[in-house]
Design a protein around this nucleic acid. Structure first.
Lengths: 389, 389
DNA sequence: AGCTTTAGTGTAAGCGCTTAGATTAAGGAA
DNA sequence: TTCCTTAATCTAAGCGCTTACACTAAAGCT
């Protein structure tokens, strides 16, 4: 292994000089630089990152941790990972820009206590941590936080940086569309796990819109776990409990469950959207392929990764930054499962401002949850869904 | 930051003792161990990985590099990444098992020379490298190889470890099925980029089977680049050049292009499989969702990642290992785009032995390319495709 | 000429850990 | 008691780099 000392010796300079040449910012006489550079190339010298890290007390590595809820064998279950793959890509893209950093990734089985010590020791390998979903227990988060800067993706606001999608806005727009444009009044909700912040916010949006529309009602709900399978179970259960009079629409907390519902309904011969509308959330890729194609709310997943990473980098640079929540705008994606006519899909941004940032206050996101002014102009003329029912 | 010295001082022992307690294998008196352990916990001491790496000359990190061919805006283009996501998951799973390791990932824009120096410097951060696709120029590979152990995923056999899918077997089984079971004789090939080993092998398989079946013929081919878009172009071009008499089947080198072809055909009102069969390769998830669902060859992508990683770990442990090629079995996935009846899909393993390993010899994979004995018994009775045409 | 800058370079002290080898303690054997 | 073994622990030399500080030489001022 070629070390800095070898280079210094052969080039006839001190290690300090070689180090300066390698980093290129200190002043070194041009002739010296050239000579050293030549030796470096000739020897193929590459600095050892461990030694560098130790010496500069910085590792130039950020860690990405995401929690996989269950390890299903089911092929289709892989879809739940689509979400993380996209976020990963966003993070990665950001890292590339600032190319001295690298990215360490680790997935965690949910609730596996043994993994917690892995996380703690990860802390010794990185300068900052990006954590997917605020699903980890608070004490663990606290312990992590006192060691390295961290940013949470899609988690609960608190004394910590969070980057998330604006579930309230998206959910509000979606349900409003269902009620106002399609006249779907009797809604059934397929919920996510109780401890997942995204799920909570989406349900809240649904409830608020229903409350704001006299005549509409939430006629039931089913608690799923974000998997396709649990969506199928939800679908089956709806058929049992509301078989003789189906809901007007089934609003699911994510796309996977919506797909499950769609499958259950298809098996039972229930026609979507004619008999019942079905909607998802997230806009994972396969949703557009289904028949009927899935109406959903687009989460800017890549952007989520990009922003979270950017924020983390900022925070590593200046640890004193006050924690804040960054809510990224979502888009309503109208396809056919809600009753919109098939054809080129239409997308409506549901937030006007490019990005909403809010300082942390004890009461979280709710304050910005007012029903947004609807903006029908964004729909291309031919696409304007006719009111039904 | 709490260091080993702090622990040693407070526990009243030497750093050596603390180190032994942390690593738990040397003999330390039970009472001492307990005392030290207590201090460690109380102080929340976590070893600094940089210092550890420097001292033991091992980083316990492996790097995964994959090359993304182009950065398309196209949503659908994300599909090309599905492949790497799966491999990543396999690698990750393997890493988890052996949990002292962590995984550094880096994507590379193809042919961006500047990225090459990034790769070289990555070399200073890891103990071993997993490289996706043998798309990198040989001189670069050589330089990398002389620094760290590495394993190539889906690359060309050479003086280096390679883990790949058995394209010959899978391709052979697929084309044989088309010709023998469906009587599709006039085949059109949609090829991948010339420098991609997987594409080369798949074409070779096609050519060999055609040669082995008098009456069948390769009536044309189109060179795509593995993207959906290039598949569409291929489809359009087929309509132009073979519009009045379509091929019996279009055999595509991967699923994305097959989907592109399907889309082009759908636009033109060409019915698949009635007028022409279309097949893919890889078995990426969305293929099963299309109408008609895509007949393809399943690559065990996760397993690919798992095995490659395992091999790398072995090689890091014993660098003297002779390089070898590991070819993983593929499965023929019969869905409806080839003419098989719709319904629960059928899968046939196309290799008998669980895993074929072969030492490197100058002439690569070809030697095992004999057409495998077909095994109709694997098909469920009701699924047995009737010969057509 | 003598003094102060400034540019360029070198010296050497860490960074936090591991580990070979030295040292000490504790038994056992003679 | 003395010597030898073995177990437990300590000392200190690295690992390869960065960087504060020291130093020298040359140039610019009075």
């Amino acid at each position: 292994m070629v070390t800095l000392y070898d280079v210094a010796r052969i080039a006839g300079v001190s290690t300090a000089t070689v180090s300066r040449v390698v980093h290129g910012q200190d002043r070194v006489r041009e002739s010296t630089r050239a000579r050293v550079q030549e030796v470096i190339e000739q020897l193929g010298y590459i600095p050892d990152s461990a030694a560098q890290s130790l010496s500069r007390r910085r590792k130039d590595v950020i860690g990405l941790i995401y929690v996989v809820r269950e390890e299903k064998q089911n092929d289709i279950e892989n879809m739940s990972l689509l979400y993380w793959d996209e976020i990963l890509r966003g993070v990665e893209g950001r890292i590339q820009d600032d190319h001295r950093w690298s990215l360490l990734i680790t997935s965690l089985r949910a609730k596996d206590e043994r993994d917690y010590s892995r996380m703690l020791s990860l802390t010794g390998k990185v300068d900052g941590l990006l954590i997917g979903e605020g699903t980890l227990p608070q004490p663990l988060l606290d312990r992590l936080m006192e060691r390295v800067p961290m940013v949470i993706i899609a988690g609960n606001p608190g004394q910590i940086d969070v980057v998330k999608a604006d579930n309230m806005q998206g959910g509000t727009a979606l349900v409003t569309h269902l009620i106002e444009d399609h006249g779907r009044q009797r809604l059934f909700h397929v919920d996510g796990p109780p401890y997942v912040p995204d799920a909570r916010e989406r349900r809240l949006a649904l409830e608020q819109v229903v409350k704001a529309h006299p005549g509409s009602a939430l006629i039931g709900s089913y608690r799923g776990n974000f998997s396709v399978l649990s969506g199928e179970e939800a679908g089956d259960s709806i058929l049992v409990t509301h078989g003789e009079q189906l809901p007007d629409a089934v609003v699911c907390a994510n796309d996977q469950m919506a797909i499950g519902v769609l499958q259950a309904f298809a098996r039972a011969g229930v026609r979507v959207p004619a008999q019942v509308a079905v909607t998802g959330f997230d806009d994972i890729y396969p949703g557009s392929l289904y028949e009927p194609s899935l109406t959903t709310v687009h989460q800017p997943m890549r952007l989520l990764g990009d922003r979270a990473c950017g924020r983390l980098l900022d925070r590593i640079a200046s640890p004193a930054l006050r924690p804040r929540v960054e809510s990224l705008p979502t888009e309503l994606v109208l396809r056919s499962s809600c009753g919109c006519p098939p054809g080129p899909e239409s997308r409506r941004p549901v937030v006007k401002q490019p990005v909403v940032k809010q300082p942390v206050v004890q009461a979280p996101v709710v304050k910005q949850a007012a029903v947004p002014a609807r903006n029908p102009a964004v729909l291309a003329a031919g696409q304007r869904p006719a009111a039904e029912g």
